[in-house]
C-alpha cells in the first residue's frame, strides 16, 4: 500500500531522511518511531506529498508519486486521512464543521454528513463538543477533533502523526484501541510516535529512525 525505496529528503543542506526503504501492506497497521527530529513527520509528509522526495521512489495506493500530475494530487489525498502533528484545525468554524470538511471536500451528500460527523465525534468521545470552537478546547480535545476529521471519510489510508501527544495515558490507550478497530475493518494505518508505550505488545511492525537514518525494524 505504501512503499519507500531508497528515499532521501534534504531540507536546504540538512538531511531529514537518508536512503529509507520501508513498506506497509494493504490493511496493515504499522508504526514509525524515533527521537525528536529523526524524520517521522517528514516521512508522512512525503506520503501525502506535502514534500517531494529528493531521491528514491515512493508508491502509495498504486500511484507512483514522482510521476503524479498536479491534478492527481487531490485524488491521492482523498484516499488518505491525516492527523497532523499540529492538528491544523480551522479556528473560525466549530467542531462539527471542522470534521465535516473532510466529507465536503469529498463531495459527500449533505444528508449523510450529519450522521457521519456525529458517529466520528462519538468515537473520540467529543459528541458533546459539537458546537464548540477549536480555541475553546483543550489540547487533547483538539487532537481528538483532528482524529475524528481523519477517520470520518473512511479513507483507505490513515496517517497519524503523534496522535496521542496531548492526552493522558488512559485516553491515549482509548485512541489506539479506536485505530486498531478501524484497522481491523481493513484500513491501512501508519502511526508516527516517540512514545514506545503505544506499540509495546501490539504485535505490529515498527520502523525505527535515528537522525534520518534507518535504525532497524522490530515487532512491538
Amino acid at each position: 500500500m505504501i512503499t519507500f525505496e531508497n528515499v532521501s529528503k534534504f531540507y536546504d543542506n540538512q538531511t531529514a531522511l537518508r536512503k529509507i526503504s520501508f513498506s506497509v501492506e494493504r490493511g496493515e497497521m504499522a508504526f514509525i518511531t524515533g527521537p525528536s527530529g529523526s524524520g517521522k513527520t517528514t516521512m508522512l509528509k512525503l506520503i501525502y506529498m506535502a514534500e517531494k522526495a529528493d531521491e528514491g521512489r515512493i508508491n502509495v495506493n498504486d500511484m507512483e508519486l514522482s510521476q503524479l500530475r498536479e491534478s492527481d494530487v487531490p485524488v491521492l489525498r482523498k484516499n488518505i486521512g491525516i492527523v497532523f502533528q499540529d492538528f491544523r484545525l480551522l479556528d473560525n468554524i466549530n467542531v462539527f464543521e471542522n470534521v465535516a470538511i473532510a466529507l465536503r471536500i469529498r463531495g459527500v451528500d449533505e444528508r449523510e454528513v450529519k450522521s457521519k460527523v456525529f458517529d466520528a465525534l462519538k468515537l473520540v468521545s467529543l459528541r458533546h463538543k459539537t458546537d464548540s470552537y477549536p480555541t475553546a478546547l483543550s489540547g487533547g480535545e483538539q487532537q481528538r477533533v483532528a482524529i475524528a476529521r481523519a477517520i470520518v471519510s473512511e479513507p483507505v489510508i490513515i496517517l497519524a502523526d503523534e496522535p496521542t501527544g496531548n492526552v493522558d495515558p488512559d485516553t491515549s490507550a482509548g485512541i489506539i484501541r479506536t485505530f486498531k478497530e478501524i484497522n481491523a475493518r481493513g484500513t491501512t494505518i501508519l502511526l508516527a510516535t516517540h512514545n514506545r508505550e503505544l506499540f509495546k505488545n501490539s504485535g505490529k511492525r515498527v520502523l525505527k529512525l535515528d537522525f534520518g537514518n534507518f535504525a532497524g525494524e522490530e515487532i512491538g
Binding site: P74, F84, R88, A102, I105
Partner: peptide
C-alpha cells in the same frame, strides 16, 4: 494562507 494549505492537504481541488 494556512487555511488554504490545510484544505489542500485534506484533498480539496483547486476549484473547491
Amino acid at each position: 494562507n494556512r487555511e488554504i494549505e490545510t484544505y489542500k492537504f485534506l484533498g480539496a481541488t483547486k476549484w473547491f
